[in-house]
Design a protein around this nucleic acid. Structure first.
Lengths: 207, 207
DNA sequence: GAGCTTTCGCTACGAGTCGTAGCGTAATAC
DNA sequence: GTATTACGCTACGACTCGTAGCGAAAGCTC
């Protein structure tokens, strides 16, 4: 997860329990202290490991928090709810529930801010968080096309553009609602949002 | 701006030049160092003022960066471009141009992350940044209703809900596109986005 | 078991930043 | 002139950082 295993077959293996303890301690510290006041020494104490162990596994605070927050998004799923509208509403509510947690709020935005000046960090975020969400968009779209709710797009370039647009609109709206506006993305809001988005998409696909 | 002037009529007044120098130095440091490596001592040196002067005016790094970033959004305007679509495209492009600057990217997201654990900071961000953008949404909507492009909404509660939704969709999509996806919100993207949004809004208002 | 390899916990360290206090000086209002 | 406030400067203890070195522990191979 955090560092490549360079084919080290011999020697004492790294404690997997330490990994989970460290990541859980990181989330706990994020809740209590927030990003700026979180220190690696404190995380090590909470996890019951030595500070040096942390530095042996992660390059720094950024990488550690990315991994700790990424685990929160593992629970994202997209079960078939029968219609595109229901699928969107379901996954948006899941996404909103994750973002409602304090460790996600402060942690996620902070690492995104740092990633604007660190290409490696940006790539790490993309691989462990963004990519997974993008797959959900692709899955939901393919499902809707099978149902006939969305027309098939033959041009791969335009298709990619549409997927990117949908992704930014969905994830961006939920994030902005939760973090900037500071209001809950509850069922009422999600219903309104899904309605506008679907009408826009079907209308744009009409011509 | 940063601290209330408690009716202090006598004594040496605060240097206004120092204010602008400090805020400019803060943005410069944001570009070169990013949020996490930015130190108040460094900003003071760049601005040519003593470190103590900084602490006399701002409570800390968060408040300073909010003020420094807020000035970037002063240039947001909403000239009448003749149609709702043109108005939206214009202001979104302006917004995207601001967010493309490195000082806005790293600074804005960082203070938003911090604001999740600091109510006073959240209020400060709302007053100096978010509120101004919200006014643009209201202005554009009123103009579109005069043109007949959007129906008037009599119910004030539902009207407020719609405005909030539009605001989160517009600002959220641009921010997510620029900062998370890491792709430019160029004219092509803005055109696609505006099309979907407008179709969704007019469709949602139809019934 | 013996021996090798890697990880772990612990301690200590210099370097850097924080936010504040104290002082003398500069600039304005009355 | 005098009062009042802001300013620049220095110094300070407290804290965090990231690293180095050490002995002990845990696993693999033979």
């Amino acid at each position: 997860m955090q560092s490549r295993t360079p084919a080290s077959r011999t020697g004492r293996p790294r404690s997997a329990a330490a990994d989970t303890a460290i990541l859980a301690a990181t989330r706990e510290a994020l809740v209590e202290l927030g990003w700026s006041k979180l220190t690696l020494g404190d995380v090590a104490t909470r996890a019951g490991v030595a500070k040096t162990t942390l530095y042996r596994r992660w390059a720094g605070k950024n990488e550690l928090v990315v991994d700790a927050v990424a685990e929160l998004f593992d629970e994202l799923e997209l079960p078939d709810r029968g219609s595109l509208a229901a699928d969107i509403e379901g996954v948006v509510l899941q996404f909103a529930a994750i973002l409602a947690r304090p460790e996600a709020k402060s942690g996620l935005m902070a690492v995104v801010a740092e990633s604007t000046r660190d290409d490696a960090l940006r790539e790490r975020i993309r691989d462990s968080i963004v990519e997974r969400q993008m797959c959900l968009v692709l899955e939901g779209r393919a499902r809707a096309q099978l149902r006939g709710e969305l027309p098939p797009e033959p041009d791969p370039r335009e298709s990619a553009r549409t997927v990117d647009l949908i992704f930014d609109m969905v994830a961006g709206a939920v994030v902005h609602r939760t973090l900037v506006s500071g209001k809950p993305a509850d069922e009422e809001w999600v219903r309104d949002f899904t309605r506008v988005l679907l009408l826009g998409l079907s209308g744009a696909a009409a011509d």
